[in-house]
Design a protein around this nucleic acid. Structure first.
Lengths: 236, 236
DNA sequence: ACCTGAACACCGTTCAAGT
DNA sequence: ACCTGAACACCGTTCAAGT
């Protein structure tokens, strides 16, 4: 259909965007330089003029996805209504990204960061600085702000990775006609040998991700507020 | 040295153990069927009699690592001293696994689970049932126990994935002589354009993982205790 | 019964050659 | 300046053939 939206000539940006779209549709595993080239109407070898390697391309995709946060009007305006509001908006912005690109989020979570303290899922100096600035201005001491940053990234990563994984990344292994593996056979295990699993299965299968995200975020913010007001409880 | 501890003939268990050791030493990326075969003194093709595919082998490695928890004397005896004590021991058991096999833990975190509700990092019906049983016996209502299970897995996954990532999985890309990439060049970014990063960098570089893990675990247990005593705050 | 050799259909990546 | 063809050194996986 839109096979000729690809004409305007190659470009690192266009390649990364195409890779992102390809991963959204077919998963990371299916992304090969040859297939991506075909998507752009070009041989694989042409990509290497703009991208040093497949690994670097994946890093570029992760970076582009996080970069999208800057364009999110819900997240902008850093501390519009206090640091709690900022954390809420930032969290929901990252969550929107995770849900929009579920196949990419595991990469956001696990690609080795540029420095050990640039923690996923924020992954960028600009967001880390933004986070620390807001907390600083809200009266957090330096060490408390850093502790809050660590606690916050852990919370966000754990919740979103599990939400995305629970939603089931389409592991469309190319040969499957896009729906063959819909009902996973592993769900059919015999639960009668377990104490409570049989009874709890219906509850376990419910998707309460959104509510749980809100609740965990609320709880984290409360915990950070304690930190702000009283300092680290186990400080040394 | 111990090149001839490999004689006793192939075996699915031996292959998975060898794969685990290989990943611990060289990373997941480096694991190929041919190299793993060489490790076992055999051609790659011989492995396919015991393992259906490389993907299945990785699943087997993840399962084996989680299975190790059953052999951990610190974790056994489920509710020896109450559910809080159980959660503490289980958490530390999983953390020991993560730190022992840092290159495997991202797989534990991101491999698609058998069913959506068998959440990483527990990943096994037996552990899920164990968890729910202990909470049930401690007086948690069914829906609260499930909510606790979800909150707990999120916490554990987020913290351990970031701890392992921060510790820097050796991305020994085979050609690098096992130490060339020790000091990552990306740490040398210019921070002067940021508001607080320059000042906070020393704090950000400190590794407080252990203390933060304890504190976050403590906080989670407190939150779960509220759940147990008063039920879900936002129940519907 | 268990392993191997050879082969197939792919990879990522390099580079001289084309336009 | 930008892309391609051909090639290299690998992959995962299959299967007939060896022992």
């Amino acid at each position: 259909m839109d096979d000729d939206s690809h004409r305007p000539g190659l470009d690192q940006r266009r390649i990364i965007d195409a890779a992102l779209q390809f991963i959204d549709e077919h998963g990371v595993q299916s992304l090969t330089m040859r297939r991506l080239g075909a998507t752009l109407g070009v041989e694989a070898m042409a990509l290497y003029r703009y991208v040093p390697s497949r690994e670097a391309l994946l890093d570029g995709v992760v970076e582009a996805v996080i970069e999208d946060l800057y364009g999110d009007p819900e997240v902008l305006l850093e501390a519009r209504d206090g640091w709690q509001d900022y954390l809420q908006r930032l969290s929901h912005g990252v969550r929107r990204i995770a849900l929009t690109h579920p196949a990419v989020f595991p990469l956001v979570a696990t690609r080795p960061p540029a420095a050990p303290w640039i923690r996923p899922p924020l992954r960028s100096l600009r967001w880390v600085d933004s986070f620390l600035t807001v907390l600083h201005d809200a009266g957090f001491r330096d060490d408390d702000a850093v502790a809050a940053y660590r606690a916050y990234t852990s919370f966000l990563l754990g919740h979103l990775l599990l939400e995305v994984s629970q939603r089931g990344v389409p592991v469309t292994s190319e040969d499957e006609p896009e729906g063959a593996a819909a009902d996973d056979p592993a769900g059919e295990v015999d639960l009668s040998t377990y104490t409570h699993l049989g009874r709890l299965k219906p509850l376990l299968e419910q998707d309460e991700s959104a509510a749980e995200f809100e609740e965990a975020l609320e709880s984290l913010v409360e915990r950070l507020d304690l930190l702000r007001r009283h300092g680290a409880r186990f400080g040394r």
